[in-house]
Amino acid sequence: MPGMTQDLPPWTLARVLAFHPSANWPFLIGCVLLLGLYLTGVVRLRRRGDSWPVGRTVAWVLGVLTVALVTTTGLEEYGMQMLSAHMLQHMVLSMFSPIILLMGAPITLALRTLPSGGRGGHGPRELLVSLLHSRYMKVISHPAFTLPLFIASLYGLYFTSLFDFLMRSTLGHELMMVHFLGVGMLFFWPIMGVDPGPHRPGHLMRMLELFIGMPFHAFFGIAVMMSSGLMVQTFAHPAASLGVNPLSDQKMAGGLAWAFSEIPTFIVLIALTFQWAKSEERLSRRKDRTADRDGDKELNAYNDYLANLQRRSGAQQQG
């Protein structure tokens, strides 16, 4: 139960990674469902003879596993008494898991596998398409909404009494974990650009959106590390068996927050670079096919234009 002090042994990697009876069961069930639904979609595609990149499946599985790793293992229990453990959960759920999950292209898979309502019908696929094109989705996926939400999820939570209030109940803790994951998915969805969406900026704009948000995240980590007092009271009195100094643990939590501002930047930049290269390659192939069909009409027209300019220049000089 959040807020209750229980005797826990000092945390080790084995204790943190081991499955624990106090696991976050809603998240465990949710992870199983996410894996099952995704793999069902992949199998359905395979059975009808369609292909689906193995890399996307691997990314989705790894993404779900990272969510399970921080919510259904011993880390969940330590996260109730140590800010550093809680911050690790927060950073993984909001900064790492969303990126890996989005690489799995779940919306694209759903659009290819959900049943259609037929001509003039309104099946699951049509409902999803309608949602993607809705005004609501345009608003919540726009940087003017996602960026302030991403920043407020840090400063508005830890620098106010909201965090202590939420940690008083299991429901509050669950909502916080869901919020971390949801905000991360919303923020990185248009930046990753793997799935279709109402907001699809170019590659340079995606990088700009990423670089705008990350400094706020890094500054948050530095502010936590340099704080001379405890920011939250939930972790003011950890179990004596942990042998943890709350202020030192808070500094470690700040260090984790600062470090995680670099990790997603590195991963996303690599992904965007590959996407950009593939996009240019597809554009080049498209132009080559067009040139083959029309006998390179565009290039010939440009050459004629240059020749015409040269003739006019010669005529002017002779005159």
Rank of each mutant, 00 (worst) to 15 (best):
L175P: 01
S169I: 04
P148S: 00
L208H: 09
L210V: 04
F216T: 00
F165S: 11
F219G: 04
F216C: 04
L149W: 13
S161A: 11
F165P: 00
I191Y: 03
S153I: 06
I212F: 15
F187I: 05
G221T: 00
H173M: 14
A223M: 14
L166P: 01
A152P: 09
S153Q: 12
A223E: 02
L154D: 06
F159V: 00
P246H: 10
I222S: 09
G184Y: 03
Q233W: 11
F211A: 12
R206M: 01
L230F: 04
R168D: 12
T146C: 00
S241I: 06
G243L: 06
P246M: 11
E209Y: 12
F150S: 08
S227L: 02
L147N: 02
G197C: 02
S161W: 05
F211V: 10
G202D: 11
S169G: 06
F220L: 06
M231N: 07
P246N: 10
H199L: 05
L149A: 15
P246Q: 11
N245A: 13
L242M: 13
S227C: 08
S227Y: 07
T170R: 12
F180I: 05
V183P: 10
F187N: 05
F220C: 02
G193L: 09
R206S: 06
H199I: 13
Y155L: 05
L171N: 12
M225R: 09
P238A: 08
G156C: 06
S228A: 14
T160N: 04
M167H: 12
F187G: 03
V194I: 15
H179V: 03
I151S: 06
H217E: 14
A152S: 09
F211H: 11
V244H: 01
V224E: 04
A239R: 08
D195C: 02
F180M: 13
P201T: 08
R200H: 12
M231C: 02
M176H: 11
V194Q: 15
M167L: 13
G243P: 10
G221V: 00
D164H: 07
L166E: 01
G184H: 03
F165W: 12
Y155M: 05
L242K: 05
M231L: 15
F163M: 12
M214T: 13
M205E: 05
L230P: 01
L171W: 14
L149E: 11
F216R: 03
L149M: 15
R200K: 10
L181G: 01
F211L: 14
F188H: 01
F220W: 02
Y155W: 15
P215Y: 00
H237P: 01
S228V: 10
L208E: 09
G184C: 01
F216G: 03
H203S: 13
M226F: 15
L247W: 09
I222W: 13
L210G: 11
I191W: 05
L157I: 15
A218K: 06
F180N: 08
L247V: 06
G182H: 10
A152K: 03
S241H: 05
M231E: 07
L162S: 04
I212A: 07
F159N: 09
L186H: 06
H179G: 06
A240E: 13
A240K: 13
L181W: 07
H203Y: 15
L147A: 10
M214E: 12
P190S: 01
S248M: 11
D164I: 01
G184M: 02
L154W: 13
H173C: 10
W189F: 13
L181P: 00
L247Y: 07
M167I: 04
G213Y: 03
D249H: 00
F150R: 08
